[in-house]
Simulated assay, not measured.
Amino acid sequence: MGVFPDFDGLGGIGDLKQVIGALLTVVLIVAVLMIVVSAICWALGASHGNPSLASKGRIGVLVGIGAAALAGAAVAWMNWLITLGSQL
């Protein structure tokens, strides 16, 4: 008696790749907008002598950069998992 994996049981990998690509696009657009708005707040806070606004802007820029990096890493990881799963 042989037991073999069902390779047709995981249909829709192409749809999953499209959904992941769309989510990456949305996350990157939001991250770039967050970086732009936070950089403007950081510049205004620094130029007008408002350390609270400057620090919140700086934190926003760092969070936006981190979110963009994590989104890119998550997509690369998911593509690696899809490739690994198709090789089983």
Rank of each mutant, 00 (worst) to 15 (best):
residue 3 V to I: 15
residue 4 F to E: 14
residue 4 F to G: 07
residue 6 D to A: 09
residue 8 D to Q: 14
residue 8 D to W: 06
residue 9 G to E: 15
residue 9 G to D: 15
residue 11 G to A: 12
residue 11 G to Y: 04
residue 12 G to S: 13
residue 13 I to Q: 00
residue 13 I to G: 00
residue 14 G to I: 02
residue 14 G to E: 11
residue 15 D to L: 02
residue 16 L to R: 10
residue 16 L to C: 07
residue 16 L to D: 03
residue 17 K to M: 07
residue 17 K to Y: 01
residue 17 K to V: 04
residue 18 Q to G: 04
residue 18 Q to N: 10
residue 18 Q to W: 03
residue 19 V to F: 06
residue 20 I to T: 11
residue 20 I to A: 15
residue 20 I to L: 14
residue 21 G to E: 15
residue 21 G to P: 13
residue 21 G to V: 14
residue 21 G to I: 12
residue 22 A to R: 13
residue 22 A to G: 10
residue 22 A to H: 09
residue 22 A to M: 11
residue 22 A to S: 13
residue 23 L to V: 07
residue 23 L to I: 07
residue 24 L to M: 12
residue 24 L to V: 06
residue 24 L to W: 04
residue 25 T to G: 13
residue 25 T to E: 08
residue 25 T to N: 07
residue 26 V to Q: 15
residue 26 V to C: 12
residue 26 V to N: 13
residue 26 V to T: 15
residue 26 V to M: 14
residue 27 V to K: 14
residue 28 L to N: 05
residue 29 I to F: 13
residue 30 V to I: 03
residue 30 V to Y: 00
residue 30 V to D: 04
residue 31 A to P: 04
residue 32 V to Y: 05
residue 32 V to P: 00
residue 32 V to Q: 07
residue 32 V to C: 02
residue 33 L to D: 10
residue 33 L to E: 07
residue 33 L to K: 03
residue 33 L to V: 02
residue 33 L to Y: 06
residue 34 M to N: 11
residue 34 M to H: 10
residue 35 I to H: 05
residue 35 I to F: 03
residue 37 V to C: 05
residue 37 V to G: 05
residue 38 S to G: 02
residue 38 S to R: 04
residue 38 S to N: 06
residue 40 I to A: 12
residue 40 I to D: 03
residue 42 W to R: 15
residue 43 A to R: 10
residue 43 A to V: 11
residue 43 A to Y: 13
residue 43 A to L: 12
residue 44 L to M: 06
residue 45 G to W: 04
residue 45 G to S: 04
residue 45 G to Q: 08
residue 47 S to N: 12
residue 47 S to E: 10
residue 48 H to E: 09
residue 49 G to D: 12
residue 50 N to Y: 00
residue 50 N to E: 00
residue 50 N to K: 00
residue 51 P to T: 02
residue 52 S to C: 00
residue 52 S to G: 04
residue 52 S to M: 06
residue 52 S to V: 08
residue 52 S to H: 01
residue 53 L to H: 03
residue 53 L to Y: 02
residue 53 L to M: 10
residue 55 S to E: 13
residue 56 K to W: 06
residue 59 I to L: 07
residue 59 I to A: 09
residue 60 G to T: 09
residue 61 V to I: 15
residue 61 V to R: 11
residue 62 L to H: 03
residue 62 L to Y: 03
residue 63 V to Q: 11
residue 63 V to H: 10
residue 63 V to A: 12
residue 64 G to I: 08
residue 64 G to C: 09
residue 65 I to A: 07
residue 65 I to W: 01
residue 66 G to R: 02
residue 67 A to K: 02
residue 68 A to I: 00
residue 68 A to M: 03
residue 68 A to W: 00
residue 71 A to F: 00
residue 71 A to G: 10
residue 71 A to P: 02
residue 71 A to N: 03
residue 71 A to V: 03
residue 72 G to T: 01
residue 72 G to V: 01
residue 72 G to Q: 01
residue 72 G to A: 04
residue 75 V to P: 02
residue 75 V to H: 11
residue 76 A to Y: 14
residue 76 A to V: 15
residue 77 W to P: 01
residue 78 M to T: 14
residue 78 M to K: 06
residue 79 N to G: 03
residue 80 W to V: 09
residue 80 W to A: 15
residue 80 W to C: 07
residue 80 W to Y: 15
residue 83 T to I: 05
residue 84 L to R: 14
residue 84 L to K: 12
residue 85 G to S: 10
residue 86 S to V: 11
residue 86 S to G: 14
residue 87 Q to F: 10
